[in-house]
Structure formats: structure tokens, C-alpha cells
């Protein structure tokens, strides 16, 4: 299939990116990641647990099988985010990072000023930056101009499950972006993911929608199909919306 996603020079077949947090247990996470078909999975960077009896994520996620995308979750300052990225690159040997600089602990909305400043520093340091941003088209353009490899506008607050709150802004971002646009955060249902792809987005990133579902493995499969269906629907070119009907069956040959 030729419809691939290219980020920072690497090509991927799956347009669904999945997080590794909040699963009930590691076996469920492993099965959910498998069911999702994701090739890129996000991870966080934290102090190693010096208690060696506890399991660790890397016991269950093979960096040879998945592309690990470290995030800078819980970073509220530009400096913390930049420091985390440098540590992440050293730990994982890849320069691709999901950059988050959080502005508020209730909404977890990005502090866009600090985000842009951090992005510029990281691009200068040779990172492939995927910034978690809001749905402001001006911000998206600034991040792209700063050299980010993609822009990742949120659909709604992290974990809120509200779906795309402002599809109009996302469409405006899509109109001018020359880098991949990946909706990140706030997806709740499979239809939310399909809607993102039908708008023309290049991918969707989600964690809670899968990990927090009652059956994460089943939901992961649903998301895989939704992203695929939404992408096909977009590429297929939908019919226009009309107020009145246009008959599907011919009027010629009627016998009444």
C-alpha cells in the first residue's frame, strides 16, 4: 500500500500512534499495542526504579519492534522539557521526541510560548520535534516555521474523551501545513479517530482512549480500523452535502 506516513525522514505504514501509560497491566498493554497495529508508541522518561524486583516497560516493549517516541510529560518549563529530551535521546539513541510543555494542571493545555521556545532550542540541537500543541493555526504555523517535523494539535484535553472540539481550526491548520498534522489528545471513541482522518489529518495519537476503555484490546482494534477507514474515506473523495435529495435510481423506464 503506497499511502505511508513520513516523519523526520522515517516512513511508517500505520497512522495510529499509541501511548503506553494507564493500562491495567503490562500483558493487556502488549496485546492492545499489537491489536492497534501501531508502529510508533510514546513513552515517558523517569528515574529508573532502583528496586530491581519491579517490572519495567522495556521488559514488554521491544525497541526493535516499535519506534519509541519519548514525551516530556509533566514538564511545565522549557528547561525541564529540553533536559528531558536530551536524556531521552541518550537513553534511546533516537532523536525523535514528543515535546510537551504544560501550562495548567487541570486542563494540561500547552504553554505555547514555552513550547515554541523549547522547540527552537531542540531543533537547533538536532532533534526531530513533534510538538503537542493547541488547535490555533497561528501556533501551528510558528512551530512548523521553527523546524518541527510535524504539528500535533489536541482534539480536546488529555484523557477527556471529548473528540475534536474544533474541527474548523483543524481544517485551517491542514490547509497551510506542509508537515504532517497528527491529532494528539482527547480522542474517546473510534468515530472520533475516523473524523480526524476524514478531515485530512495525517495521523492520530491516543493513549487513554485505548488504555482506559473497558476492553483495551478490543478498542485498540477498533481504533486501527477507524483510522484506516477514515483515511480511505478522505482519499476516496466524499460526496457533497446537499439539502435536497437526488434520486439514486433512474426515472427512465418507469411503468407507471
Amino acid at each position: 500500500m503506497g499511502d505511508t506516513l513520513t516523519i523526520g525522514g522515517k516512513t511508517f505504514r500505520s497512522r495510529l500512534l499509541v501511548g503506553t501509560g494507564k493500562y491495567p497491566d503490562y500483558p493487556t498493554m502488549v496485546r492492545a499495542l499489537e491489536a492497534s497495529g501501531a508502529e510508533i508508541v510514546t513513552v515517558a522518561v523517569r528515574r529508573v526504579n532502583l528496586d530491581r524486583t519491579k517490572e519495567s516497560l522495556l521488559d514488554h516493549v521491544d525497541p526493535k519492534k516499535y519506534t519509541l517516541l519519548p514525551n516530556t510529560a509533566a514538564c511545565y518549563t522549557e528547561d525541564d522539557a529540553v533536559r528531558t529530551c536530551h536524556l531521552a535521546r541518550e537513553a534511546g539513541m533516537s532523536s525523535m521526541v514528543k515535546l510537551e510543555v504544560i501550562g495548567d494542571e487541570n486542563t494540561l493545555f500547552p504553554d505555547t510560548e514555552a513550547l515554541l521556545s523549547a522547540a527552537k532550542r531542540l531543533v537547533r540541537d538536532g532533534f526531530v520535534v513533534l510538538p503537542y500543541t493547541n488547535d490555533d493555526p497561528i501556533m501551528a504555523r510558528k512551530l512548523e516555521d521553527a523546524g518541527c517535523a510535524a504539528v500535533m494539535p489536541l482534539a480536546a484535553p488529555i484523557g477527556s474523551g471529548l473528540g475534536i472540539r474544533n474541527p474548523f481550526n483543524i481544517r485551517i491548520i491542514l490547509e497551510s501545513a506542509k508537515v504532517p498534522v497528527i491529532v494528539d489528545a482527547g480522542v474517546g471513541s473510534a468515530s472520533d479517530a475516523a473524523v480526524a482522518m476524514e478531515l485530512g489529518c495525517d495521523g492520530v495519537l491516543m493513549n487513554t482512549a485505548i488504555a482506559g476503555a473497558r476492553d483495551p484490546v478490543l478498542m485498540a482494534g477498533a481504533m486501527r480500523e477507524a483510522v484506516s477507514a477514515g483515511r480511505k474515506s478522505f482519499l476516496a473523495g466524499r460526496i457533497p452535502k446537499k439539502l435536497y435529495a437526488t434520486a439514486s435510481s433512474p426515472l427512465d423506464g418507469t411503468f407507471f
Binding site: 501509560g21 498493554m29 519519548p70 531521552a88 537513553a91
Partner: peptide
């Protein structure tokens, strides 16, 4: 010293 690794996250 800070010794960090990758853990689960979104």
C-alpha cells in the same frame, strides 16, 4: 546522579 529510563506514558 540521575539515572533515567523509559516508562509507560501517553
Amino acid at each position: 546522579l540521575e539515572i533515567v529510563t523509559f516508562v509507560g506514558g501517553g
